[in-house]
């Protein structure tokens, strides 16, 4: 994979920038389909380890084909805990980190991982093809362990808008995409209930999945 590096930003800065961009432009507080407020850490008496969406809101529609050509509708996962994130395969830092932490969370959950569905939505209609997605999933040991939804700009654009997601070419390089980088925790009732920044700890997911699937 030909990745271009973000040369002017180190690891932490780019992750934090993604969080900042996400939270300022795409994430919490501004959208009908996103949480109106989110607290970054469980407060005393809070149930979740991740940020809590207050109030929880019904997740916006999400119907796209995955990288294998199957039509995926978020509604079909009612009754399960679902994590939704927005990534792209050529992403040099934040996205691989999100995926690696999700993989770790699945490993830590063990047999309970079956009760969690991970869904990634592309933020790069040009770069994310069935071939590049297959290679990405293989590189990260996630083949068959998550659904990766792709589409053309029109199809993805509608989802980005509904979910208040920023996804636009980055100035740093043609292959780079500036995008919201949160992980949305959706409970069994279909409501966005928790939010995790790109640098979440896998143990937060392990803690919250049993609560989300209730």
């Amino acid at each position: 994979m030909n990745r271009k590096r973000i040369t002017s930003l180190g690891w932490l800065s780019s992750a934090s920038l993604a969080v900042l961009v996400a939270l300022l432009l795409g994430g919490c507080g501004g959208s009908q389909s996103s949480a109106e407020t989110a607290q970054p850490a469980a407060t005393e008496g809070g149930r979740y380890s991740g940020g809590e969406a207050k109030p929880p809101k019904l997740a916006a529609p999400l119907v796209l084909h995955d990288s294998l050509g199957h039509l995926v509708n978020l509604e079909e996962y009612r009754g399960k805990a679902v994590l939704v994130t927005f990534i792209y395969t050529h992403c040099p830092d934040v996205c691989p980190l999100i995926v690696s932490h999700l993989k770790t969370a699945q490993a830590l959950l063990g047999p309970k991982a079956k009760r969690l569905q991970i869904v990634a939505v592309s933020t790069d209609p040009r770069g994310d093809t069935p071939k590049t997605v297959a290679a990405f999933l293989k590189a990260h040991g996630m083949t068959g362990r998550m659904r990766y939804l792709i589409g053309n700009r029109g199809e993805l654009g509608r989802v980005w808008k509904d979910w208040n997601i920023v996804a636009k070419p980055a100035k740093a390089g043609r292959d780079l995409v500036e995008h919201s980088a949160l992980v949305y925790g959706i409970a069994a009732n279909g409501k966005i209930t928790t939010l995790y920044p790109a640098n979440f700890n896998p143990s937060q997911i392990v803690h919250d999945v049993p609560l989300l699937e209730r």
Partner: peptide, 18 residues
């Protein structure tokens, strides 16, 4: 406005990360 409150919280959170 709620959005400003969120931004303030976010700002603190991001600074904490940085």
């Amino acid at each position: 406005p709620p959005a400003l409150i969120v931004l303030a919280v976010v700002g603190v959170f991001v600074v904490e990360i940085l």
